[in-house]
């Protein structure tokens, strides 16, 4: 990605991001620009820095930014606390969502919507209608509301619950960290329908982090970025996912190329 491609209309703008955890540098100069209405995907092997990038954008306190900028509609996210970023419109669908025994799903959703979209949005028939519609889209039964957040949920239920939150919180930017892993093909289709409903035809944008091309068949990304060793080594259209599926990552790995094994 060239710096010159970014412009002031970008919803998310990441510039020269260097970050890590403790003394370990994980991201080594990331540049990324996502316009409103676009869906981008980041693909890469385990340990390439995908989840770190997601956590940094959301503001996880364990990660440290050494250099660079992360802007949401021109505002520097790095100066905001995680909850402020959420209220500004950043949403992270977690790879491993936390269980909170004792906190009912219904209450949690109402509080989250009130925090992010305002108290009025979480009240009355309109909210209930919105909730019912989102649950129908994701094939989630009403009894779900009285369960405790992610407590005893199957892998598929956790992922669907994350997407339910995405639909209700209506963020400007949705980051989906391996939301497809652990899902069967029906689950992937359901989750993809949720992502499309949240982004397509809106001014929102999504960044999908994944190992596999399966979900990308159902959520046609505008751009795919390949992250290797903390750097984006390639950017392309949907065809890049097919190439990765066929050839793996090695042909794009600068380290492998240097060693003559690509």
């Amino acid at each position: 990605m060239e710096h010159g491609e970014s412009d002031i209309e970008a919803l998310l703008e990441i510039r020269n991001l260097h970050a890590g955890i403790g003394d370990t540098q994980i991201l080594k100069g990331i540049d990324l620009s996502i316009a409103p209405g676009e869906i981008h995907a980041i693909m890469g092997r385990n340990g390439s820095g995908k989840t770190t990038a997601a956590n940094i954008i959301m503001g996880h306190p364990d990660f440290e930014v050494e250099e660079g900028e992360v802007l949401l509609s021109g505002e520097n996210l790095l100066e905001l606390e995680p909850w402020e970023r959420a209220r500004e419109g950043v949403f992270l669908s977690f790879q491993y969502p936390q269980a909170v025994p004792g906190l009912q799903v219904g209450n949690f959703l109402r509080k989250s919507v009130a925090s992010i979209r305002g108290k009025e949005a979480a009240k009355g028939a309109d909210f209930r209608g919105e909730l019912n519609e989102a649950m129908d889209t994701l094939d989630i039964p009403r009894s779900f509301l009285s369960r405790y957040v992610n407590d005893g949920f199957s892998g598929g239920e956790k992922k669907r619950f994350e997407i339910l939150q995405l639909l209700l919180l209506k963020p400007k930017l949705a980051i989906l960290d391996e939301t497809d892993s652990g899902l069967d093909i029906d689950g992937i289709k359901t989750v993809a329908a949720g992502i499309n409903a949240a982004v397509r035809g809106t001014d929102s944008a999504a960044l999908i982090i994944t190992h596999y091309s399966r979900i990308l068949e159902h959520v046609q990304p505008d751009k795919i970025h390949v992250l290797i060793g903390g750097q984006i080594v390639a950017t392309g259209g949907p065809e890049l996912a097919m190439q990765l599926e066929e050839r793996g990552y090695e042909w794009l790995d600068p380290k492998a190329e240097a060693e003559g094994i690509a």
């Binding site: 995680p82 909850w83 209220r87 909170v100 004792g102 925090s115």
Partner: peptide, 24 residues
Amino acid sequence: FYLESRGFDPSEAKSTLIAAFLNS
């Protein structure tokens, strides 16, 4: 962090988690 990522400020997150714990 999970609750903060859903817009709860630190004080709300803390009191919500205490209430959830007792609610169990």
